Simulated scan of single mutants.
Amino acid sequence: MSNSGTTLYLADLDRTCRFLRLPQIFSTCMSFSLVADMGIHRGYIGNWFMSIWCFCCAVTLIILTIELRRLPSEFPFFWYLSNTYACYSALLCLSASIIYSITYVQFLPYGPYQDRAIAATAFSCIASVFYATEVVKMWERSKIYKTSCYVLTMPGLLKVLETFMAGIIFAFISNTSLYLHQPALEWSVAVYSICFIPAALAILLNLGKWKCRLPGPFPLFQLVLSLLSVLLYISALVLWLLYQFNEEFGGHPQQSSDGDCRDELTYDMCTWDQRLAVAILTTINLLIYMTKLGYWACQVSVETKALPRVS
Rank of each mutant, 00 (worst) to 15 (best):
N3L: 11
S4K: 12
L10Y: 12
L13W: 08
R21H: 11
R21A: 06
P23S: 11
F26I: 02
F26W: 09
V35K: 08
M38P: 06
N47S: 15
S51C: 12
C54E: 11
A58G: 03
T60C: 03
L61I: 00
L61Y: 13
L64D: 13
T65I: 02
P72A: 06
F77L: 15
Y80H: 14
S82H: 15
Y85Q: 04
A86P: 01
S89I: 05
L92D: 05
C93T: 07
S101K: 14
Q106P: 03
P112W: 13
D115P: 07
A117T: 05
T121A: 07
F123E: 00
C125M: 07
T133C: 06
T133L: 03
V136H: 13
V136M: 07
K137Q: 15
K143V: 03
Y145H: 15
K146W: 07
L161W: 08
E162K: 09
T163L: 06
I168M: 08
S174Y: 15
N175K: 13
L178C: 02
L178M: 00
A184Y: 05
S188T: 02
S188P: 01
A190I: 08
V191Y: 08
S193G: 10
F196Y: 09
I203N: 05
L204T: 10
G208I: 09
R213H: 14
P219M: 10
L223C: 08
V224L: 09
L227I: 03
V230W: 09
L232I: 02
Y233N: 06
L239E: 00
L239S: 00
L242D: 04
Y243K: 02
E247V: 04
P253S: 15
S256C: 15
S256Y: 15
S257H: 12
D258W: 10
E264H: 13
Y267P: 04
C270F: 04
R275G: 00
I288G: 02
K292C: 03
Q299M: 14
V300N: 06
L307W: 12
P308T: 07
